[in-house]
Design a protein around this nucleic acid. Sequence first.
DNA 1: TGTACATCAGTGAACGCGCGTTCACTGATGTAC
DNA 2: TGTACATCAGTGAACGCGCGTTCACTGATGTAC
Lengths: 209, 209
Amino acid sequence: MENATPHKPAAAGSAREARRARLRGHLIEAAEELIREGGIEAVKARDLARMAGCSLGAIYTVFDDLDQQAMAVNGRTFRKLGAVVAASQTGADSLAPTERLVRMACAYLGFATEHNNLWRTLFDFEMSTEGPVPKWYLEELSRLFDHIREPLREIFPEMSEEERDLMTRTLFSSVHGIVLLGLDRRISAVPREKLETMIRMLLCQIGNR
Amino acid sequence: MENATPHKPAAAGSAREARRARLRGHLIEAAEELIREGGIEAVKARDLARMAGCSLGAIYTVFDDLDQQAMAVNGRTFRKLGAVVAASQTGADSLAPTERLVRMACAYLGFATEHNNLWRTLFDFEMSTEGPVPKWYLEELSRLFDHIREPLREIFPEMSEEERDLMTRTLFSSVHGIVLLGLDRRISAVPREKLETMIRMLLCQIGNR
DNA sequence: TGTACATCAGTGAACGCGCGTTCACTGATGTAC
DNA sequence: TGTACATCAGTGAACGCGCGTTCACTGATGTAC
């Protein structure tokens, strides 16, 4: 409960605060590493403690439970993903809107390839845990959507806001699906450059009407 | 090992065979029910035994382990899904190829809606279990792809086989993504009819070039 | 058909493991005077 | 600055639960003669 607020309200004792924050950081770092290597299933309390250089019990002085900690990693991952997608648009103002969408989608593909387990956990997690999705999660998602909406405004100027909203979701979900199934070597075995071709196929059909 | 072959080779003792087959059937039925209600995570040996009316140990006279049993359920699910998608095409010969794709996709959406957990397990599973995906799984998947390929032949007559193959995967993955994220109330909350609109948006853009 | 024996499906108590979480305790850090 | 006391971060052994799988045993089914 106290853990829900990132910092204790205590006025004095900032050394304690700092230690606490450092421990928290180490634990999130450790959790990220474990998820990166083996997915959410690989996050075990004893490994976290060992990697963060603390005892088993110390984890519970910083987080209420392991789920909360995994959620903290998801927060980081989402911010990184957002940054990568945003970066794909720098200096792209002069490009055709379709091309901007392609860059965005390829950035998404790149992120999912490079941080596969972290990226999967972003979507795995909200299925496994009960209760509502945290606000920041939905906000981060709609920030991703915002990037897509803009080029769509150029491609479909006649659409209503609501229609464009649906189109945004449609494109995001489509690209997500292509990346999700495409990166699964067990059922797809489509090489990376073919995936880019697939993304292009999809988005160019949309753009060149 | 012996369990891998569906029937024992024994010439005589067909009553034993029959009992065995019946037990197997009951167990698969039970597993399907459990997955339907609570997803793959809800499949517990003790529940299976209770529901199938046998003892705990009996399970292991029919299946090597619970994973093998879940895989058997996936086999059934895949066949049902295939049938539903195929059924969406009966009497659709006269329709435009785009419209045929839409029907197929809506049939897919319908199946995923109605049998949500069974459908999710189809794709969850191959991530959780080690080892290669069984042949029949990939065959069933490519049978689904075959349905898509045909309308595409009409829409893109100039494409090479390989390109059309990629386009097939692209469309399947896209629709899969729309359904996957769309049916997740936690992050999407898009009502059913909006999902159909999204599918139409996607496929009509593809068709009306 | 009947008897003796062999085979095998089916039983369920018990094993064993993994693992999240707790809690009585300790030692360090801060506060009061 | 120094002493006495209070607070709290951090410890790790132990708890407790869930659950897949095994195995010595039993009773039913089939076979041989």
